[in-house]
Amino acid sequence: MSDHSDTTNASGEHVAGQVKFLVCVDGSPPSRVAVHFACRRAKNTNGRVALLHIIQPVDFRQWSGVEEMMREERRDEAEALLQELAADVNGWAGVMPELLMREGRIGDEILGAVDEDPSIDLLCIGSNPAEGKGKLVGFLAGNLAGRLAIPLVIVPGTLTDEKIINIT
């Protein structure tokens, strides 16, 4: 199920040499830190930012009315999240990000998004060091050698704003 839609595409055409950061967001604090990191990097390198949110597939399918309602509610929530983060990106990087929404299993859909858009140069995900190696980090790192053809940046959620400004 690769049901994706570009809600906004405010940034211009791909410019040679311009780096495009793809950040996976789920509304968690670490993913916000990852967005912040990517924005700072993008600003300093004159790059662009794309936000990707994966909608969980609806696993209750007995009643189509219920299934449809769940899908709509998740879509609405996803849109609200992306719009909210887009405002943050605008503040940090000064550009409007590209917003992507896909429905399916997180790992598969991230790889799918990267495969479909060759202009993406860097994949950026947040991690929560307090909870140890997350499933997503493990999955992407494990598949990095085989399927992911671009660098993967893991941003720890514990990174402070000053530190981010420092390293970018």
């Binding site: 199920m1 399918r61 007995q62 189509s64 399916g104 299993r105």
Partner: peptide
């Protein structure tokens, strides 16, 4: 299979 299929016919 459910993640791949989405059919009213299935229901």
């Amino acid at each position: 299979v459910g993640a791949e299929l989405r059919g009213e016919e299935l229901r």
